[in-house]
């Protein structure tokens, strides 16, 4: 019992699917939280305060980290196996199959971009917030309090190159989700001819909402920084 989760192809896909669902749910939570930063920086900081380095936030972080690690390790394992299964000789000519999305064939590349973005994001935010609290310090390297997320956002997205990098990151996430969200249902065995168009639409909608809402925060704070304090969006 349970060995199938790492030694059978469908078991491995189940793990990808379940961790994927979990990560999507987290992204949706994070996204909702971010929207608060646009409406009310103070409100946002209250949420940051609430989470902080409290036990539930720490447990959540650990589970989340495990989710990311498992999702990525399994992706590496699957990709290596798939490369081996493809064989040494490759087709000289390949063509796009009808109805097959580009994202579905590039999930590992997209996922890697998402992961690299995540690393940057952790460096930009987590290491300056929760980590600071865990270390028991009062202020982070920038001199902000660890729960002052709004200040951190403002600081980060006043720098144009972060804006560009984050938007590329969100775009990769968009592609990843357009396939990932419906694919996780398929891997769980929930899919049929009637539901495929629906699931694919849902995937597309979820991916687009996630992209727009995350991008909104970035763009909002960037434009605000351009205006200095002159315009109050």
């Amino acid at each position: 019992m349970g060995t199938f989760l790492y030694n059978s192809s469908i078991g491995k896909k189940l793990v990808m699917s379940v961790t994927g669902i979990f990560l999507v749910l987290f992204i949706l939570f994070h996204m909702s939280m971010n929207l608060v930063a646009v409406i009310s920086p103070e409100g946002y900081n209250m949420i940051c305060e609430l989470l902080g380095a409290n036990w539930y936030a720490l447990v959540g972080t650990l589970v989340l980290a495990a989710g990311v690690v498992i999702h990525f390790l399994y992706a590496i394992m699957l990709t290596l196996q798939n490369l081996a299964a493809r064989g040494k000789e490759r087709y000289a000519v390949t063509a796009k199959e009808q109805g097959v999305s580009w994202a579905s064939k590039n999930m590992f590349v997209l996922g890697t971009i998402v992961l690299l973005g995540l690393c940057l994001h952790l460096l930009n935010f987590w290491s300056k917030m929760q980590l600071v609290e865990i270390m028991g310090q009062e202020t982070n390297s920038l001199g902000f309090g660890p729960a002052d997320g709004a200040a951190l956002i403002r600081y980060t997205f006043s720098q144009w190159y972060y804006v560009v990098v984050y938007l590329i990151w969100f775009a990769a996430l968009w592609f990843h989700l357009t396939h990932g969200v419906w694919s996780m249902f398929q891997s769980l065995g929930w899919g049929n001819k009637t539901w495929y168009p629906r699931l694919k639409s849902i995937a597309c909608i979820v991916a687009t909402i996630v992209f727009l809402c995350f991008a909104l925060v970035v763009v909002f704070y960037f434009i605000q920084s351009l205006c200095g304090g002159a315009c109050n969006l």
Binding site: K12, L14, E97, G99, S104, M107, K193
Partner: peptide
């Protein structure tokens, strides 16, 4: 290899067998 639900198999299958059967297998 492992299925990643691209659907390329269904597109090229000469009998157009649906990947809904893969869902059922899962």
């Amino acid at each position: 290899g492992n299925c990643t639900n691209t659907g390329a198999c269904e597109a090229e299958c000469p009998k157009a067998i649906s990947i809904a059967h893969i869902a059922r297998l899962n």
